[in-house]
Design a protein around this nucleic acid. Structure first.
Lengths: 342, 342
DNA sequence: TTGTAGGCGTTATCAA
DNA sequence: TTGATAACGCCTACAA
């Protein structure tokens, strides 16, 4: 079955391709009422489907948005098994589709550029998650398309950002523990240097401590990979070497789950013996245990990022601020216990 | 910064665009060694990036593969929160990228067609997950591109399929319980009518029972949504109304986790009081509890589907069978207990 | 070995 | 109100 083109439908009703194009592009005021109807009928009749590839070529607009998420270093597989990313993609995709854009999903190999993909495909914009080397961002700017960074502290003014106030989040979680009577509070977090997000949460942790007049103890800080496994190790270490700790702030739910496993295996009960608060409120918590955590509405974040990007693409983004900060709140569940304030 | 085109680089070294195109497309035998070098140098120098949109138009090949996953009916969000889908996408994407294809991810609204997207974007092929109405498949065939269905029992010979032997999987899980001394075995499953996969697993369940001379009791079958919540309800129902049941086969890990929660809340201990086996071996099990389950290597499934599709696209798929069945095996963990065989 | 020219499907410009 | 025609960037006969 051969493809039906503008020419075909023009020929079918004896007009020029231009006329067809007019009604296709909502410039019906240029065409007589009568022919508009004829064209529309023919489009239906012949089952015409526009070729976006050709359109993209001439309009220099692809209706295509690139979305990047981090991947494992070994197998180059997307980190979709991290529920945070799969959830946020869901938000992004729904918004994009609703607005007539398609989503090109990919990871990017270490040291590789995304400029190629961006230019090859004539992307209208991109949404980027994860942390990359500075050069990555520099190159990307050459693509000359609007770009939204999620959870990034890249300060370059070229990029738009969607995120949360991580410092405040760290503060909130720690303060919550303090308000429940805890004073020896461990922090389990992703690597503090590598990643702005973790550093901010760490700073929030320290601020809450100092505000309450609690001495900051570096021994209580465990930083490593943002993973269940590292949380698990930290949990065991806390149970073994830091018996005074009564509360743990894990800066990602995934880590919190690991911490709890480590603690539980060390015969500590949650929250009777030790309290744990997480961060993110990932959706799989409903399948696991009632973790008290700092909620960031992940899906909403994806939607917001997509909205912002579309506004920028369509030129409605002039009055947009470069940065969108989404709200946070504590979700009280069952892993934090109020203890006697000595 | 204006786009660098073939013309630009041709002009730069004083040759015709055709020559540049030759070396770009690996037809260097048509060009003198000397000019090949010059062209390549200029490509580097000017930082030329080919426009796949234009190439797609003339070659009628987009290097683009569509991937569809199911979505929630209410919010039209992708079911990526179901870890099964996010995991399989990871496998698909890594293979596609490695082979020079890009991945267009989307859901498809109820009653809508995917033919449009397919034709609009000139997709080279598609991978489809989920169950749709018959008309959906009929329309899709018109796209005239190779299509791989994952976990589908659509019998139409047009489509290629990647899946597992679900009947055997159901048999395997049930037999495992029987071998551990269980005779009153409940089945918690997705709706049996709607979805071929669940029906097959159900048939396997029945076969294992009958093979062991156990009477099939319809009261022991709970079918509903493939979700944590439904599993939870089923777990509670089993604890309350079916005290004789000693083993539960849940035909998805997500449901198994729900079942376990329902059971546990009803003061039953797993596996001391009642055993549970799941299906899928989703990766988040590492974050939850040591569920005994039927493993299907989900990532491998994604990779396999992508491989098959690429072979078909590139014409190497002539000797491919229409159907690829991947292996299954039991993963023994800690939710099934051997009980006295009466 | 290289260059010319036509065409992929669409939109946009300019005449008619 | 409509119709030729050029252009988007690329590839590929075919001719030179």
């Amino acid at each position: 079955m051969k493809r039906v083109t503008v020419k075909d439908i023009a020929k079918a009703i004896g007009v020029s391709p231009a006329v067809v194009s007019y009604v296709l592009n909502g410039k019906e005021y240029k065409v007589s009422q009568e022919t508009v109807l004829k064209v529309k009928a023919a489009i239906k009749e012949l089952n015409y489907i526009p070729n976006l590839t050709a359109r993209s070529l001439v309009k220099n607009k692809s209706q295509l948005v690139g979305v990047i998420i981090p991947q494992t270093e070994e197998t180059s597989q997307l980190l979709l098994t991290n529920p945070f990313y799969s959830e946020i993609i869901g938000g992004i995709e729904s918004k994009l589709r609703q607005c007539g854009y398609h989503l090109l999903l990919s990871g990017v190999d270490k040291g590789k550029s995304y400029l190629d993909t961006s230019v090859q495909r004539n992307l209208d914009g991109a949404i980027i998650m994860g942390i990359y080397q500075e050069q990555f961002y520099e190159e990307l700017k050459q693509a000359q398309i609007p770009i939204v960074l999620i959870d990034s502290y890249i300060s370059d003014n070229y990029f738009y950002r969607v995120g949360i106030d991580d410092e405040y989040g760290g503060y909130l979680a720690t303060k919550y523990l303090i308000e429940h009577g805890h004073r020896d509070i461990a922090l389990v977090t992703g690597s503090i240097k590598r990643d702005g997000v973790n550093e901010k949460r760490f700073l929030g942790y320290k601020r809450a401590l100092s505000e309450a007049g609690i001495f900051y103890n570096p021994d209580y800080v465990f930083d490593g990979l943002v993973s269940f496994e590292y949380g698990y190790k930290a949990g065991i270490a806390i149970a073994q070497n830091h018996k005074k700790v009564t509360g743990v702030f894990a800066s990602a739910d995934l880590m919190a789950l690991g911490v709890i496993k480590g603690l539980t295996e060390s015969r500590l009960k949650i929250p009777e013996d030790i309290s744990v608060i997480g961060f993110d409120n990932i959706s799989i918590l409903q399948f696991t245990l009632p973790l008290t955590t700092v909620d960031q509405n992940i899906t909403a974040k994806g939607i917001k990022a997509a909205e912002l990007l579309i506004d920028l693409i369509e030129g409605k983004g002039d009055n947009e601020s470069k940065e969108k900060i989404l709200p946070l709140r504590i979700i009280e569940r069952e892993t934090v216990k109020r203890i006697k304030d000595k």
